[in-house]
């Protein structure tokens, strides 16, 4: 019996573990080794320089700026996205007319590639002839029409937050919807019989039962927000004056544009640790909550 269980374990786990180890972990670990070198990415040779890259990073002003921006960006995106996604998932879980339509519409932006989404909003927010300007001038709000959302240091990062939430809210919503589908309708019926208010039903039935979906969404959006690259790169280019530079764009800049590959990989490693702390911390916290209920 025990042996059979082992065979089963092997059978179920082997394909995924093998593929993942070979094509994800092995290249990652051997890639991270470059963090200890001064390789520029193109020369045939490099030197081992130990922890020098990390020492340099700790003195790199751009890195701190990017780190700060990444934190602000990630927290804003994760919170906004999840609150909205859960709200609309609950709304669209009901048997309303047109729910299928609304679900498809809400998911639509997630289908678009980031490059197109970014270009689209660049065109809209463009301060010279963008739709933003055209629209607010037409309704007579001239002050707002003049806002240069992508080109001002105070708004650039938050404009990227908005676009990111716009793009990925539907993605999170789909996962919440899947979670809501697994809640038996009887529970709500019982709740209604007891005269529980909508809010109470949410707190006592919905929220605990979609805990797995919450865990998944929180962690996925945290990981993706910290790694964000395309949107920032195209929407603001990290500017103006690095005001929206995030770690993802900073890594790209040093690893491939300024030919400091080893340095870029060292930054990746730090980013990896930051994400791991946030994600595994959340996992630990959220899982504990799941067990509690």
């Amino acid at each position: 019996m025990k042996r059979r269980r082992l065979v089963n374990l092997f059978l179920f786990l082997f394909p995924a573990t093998a593929l993942y180890t070979l094509f994800v972990m092995y290249p990652s670990l051997s890639g991270l080794y470059y963090a200890l070198t001064d390789w520029d990415g193109i020369s045939p040779s490099y030197r081992m320089i130990g922890m020098d890259n990390f020492k340099d990073i700790l003195q790199d002003k751009l890195f701190y700026k990017a780190l700060q921006n990444s934190l602000i960006f990630s927290i804003a995106v994760v919170v906004l996205k999840n609150v909205l996604a859960l709200f609309f998932a609950i709304m669209l879980d009901r048997k309303l007319r047109l729910t299928g339509f609304f679900r498809s519409v809400f998911f639509l932006p997630a289908i678009l590639s980031s490059i197109i989404v970014a270009y689209l909003w660049v065109t809209i927010f463009n301060p010279v002839f963008g739709f933003w300007q055209v629209f607010f001038e037409a309704i007579g709000w001239d002050r707002i029409a003049q806002w240069d959302l992508l080109g001002s240091t105070s708004t650039a990062l938050f404009t990227v937050v908005f676009v990111s939430v716009w793009q990925t809210m539907g993605y999170a919503m789909v996962i919440y919807l899947a979670g809501l589908q697994t809640i038996p309708a009887e529970l709500y019926d019982a709740g209604q019989m007891d005269g529980a208010s909508k809010w109470k039903q949410f707190v006592h039935i919905t929220f605990p039962l979609i805990a797995p979906a919450i865990t998944i969404n929180m962690i996925l959006s945290t990981i993706n927000a910290f790694k964000e690259f395309d949107l920032v790169y195209i929407l603001t280019g990290g500017g103006p004056f690095d005001s929206s530079q995030v770690i993802g764009t900073a890594i790209y800049k040093v690893a491939f544009e300024t030919n400091q590959f080893g340095y870029g990989i060292a930054m990746s490693l730090i980013l990896f640790f930051i994400i791991a702390v946030f994600a595994l911390g959340q996992l630990w916290y959220l899982k504990r909550r799941e067990v509690d209920y």
Binding site: M25, G31, G41, Y252, A255, F272
Partner: peptide, 17 residues
Amino acid sequence: YFLLGMMIPIQAKIITL
């Protein structure tokens, strides 16, 4: 272990991959 893979930026693994 499976989760960790999602956290490594693509730049760090593309050449070795």
